[in-house]
């Protein structure tokens, strides 16, 4: 790759006006199941972004496919809801072509660790200027609750009626193995913890959060376990699918 290695968000233009969480809310109706942990992550991110002090138009959120990947629609930034598992590739092109952008990937455990596993490890090791938020609910939410690469062995779902047999992947081990420059995790029920892992880590946040070396990028891997999913689903009906969705606010789409 001929692009210069990233220097965190130091090359992203800063805003002269102070933004609010409201500035980052799009006009789209949020359509996750009531009680879904994704709401808390969204609210936390919306409240956090103004603290970066960046120009809002220089932020891009790219997602794959899944419930979590609807995220970009709810943020008033540039964004792309791409295809299943491939968001890190698209984000890599954006970040390489435009060092003045702060590029974020929003992905799920299926999106990032199953279909997109290869892209994830290469995005991490390549150290392009990206921040990746992985929403780990240990299930394929959007496709109605099949087990995922992070489901614990024995998880009973529609596709594993006798319980899943394969061992789960630990996203943090994977990210550390790929030598991501920053890895953090938090629970969705812990807003302070979520905010903490979103913030650029001190090692990469020297004024103004930029360094010219390889370690200067902030790659945040947030492992967010929804409060409803803190223990893996044990039965098909307790999965993150329609059987568990209440009423009319359930997502109206599948992908």
């Amino acid at each position: 790759m001929t692009a210069t290695m990233s220097d965190g968000i130091g090359s992203v233009p800063r805003s002269t006006v102070v933004a609010t969480a409201g500035d980052y809310k799009s006009d789209q109706e949020v359509r996750w199941c009531p009680g879904c942990g994704d709401y808390i992550v969204l609210n936390t991110v919306q409240a956090f972004l103004p603290t970066l002090g960046l120009r809002r138009e220089n932020l891009v959120f790219v997602s794959g496919i899944g419930c979590s990947s609807r995220f970009p629609y709810y943020l008033d930034t540039y964004g792309m809801h791409s295809i299943h598992g491939r968001a890190p590739t698209i984000a890599t092109g954006m970040a390489v072509a435009r060092p003045d952008l702060s590029v974020w990937v929003v992905t799920g455990d299926g999106d990032a660790l199953s279909i997109g596993g290869n892209h994830l490890i290469h995005a991490l090791r390549r150290n392009v200027n990206l921040t990746i938020l992985l929403f780990n609910n240990r299930v394929y939410g959007l496709t109605k609750g099949q087990y995922s690469p992070t489901s614990t062995a024995g998880t009973i779902t529609k596709s594993t009626p006798m319980g899943s047999v394969d061992a789960p992947l630990d996203p943090v081990s994977l990210a550390l193995g790929a030598e991501a420059t920053f890895v953090g995790r938090a629970l969705d029920s812990d807003r302070a913890g979520l905010t903490e892992v979103l913030a650029p880590p001190p090692a990469t946040a020297g004024p103004p959060w930029s360094r010219s070396t390889r370690t200067a990028r902030s790659s945040t891997l947030v492992r967010s376990t929804t409060s409803r999913r803190r223990t893996p689903p044990r039965t098909a009906s307790s999965g993150c699918g329609p059987g568990n969705r209440s009423g009319s606010a359930a997502p109206t789409s599948s992908a």
Binding site: V62, R86, P88, I90, G93, H122
Partner: peptide, 17 residues
């Protein structure tokens, strides 16, 4: 890129940018 899918993904992302 790590494969052809990533190669075209990077190209498309760059075009968006």
């Amino acid at each position: 890129a790590e494969d052809e899918i990533a190669a075209v993904g990077a190209a498309l992302g760059a075009s968006f940018a």
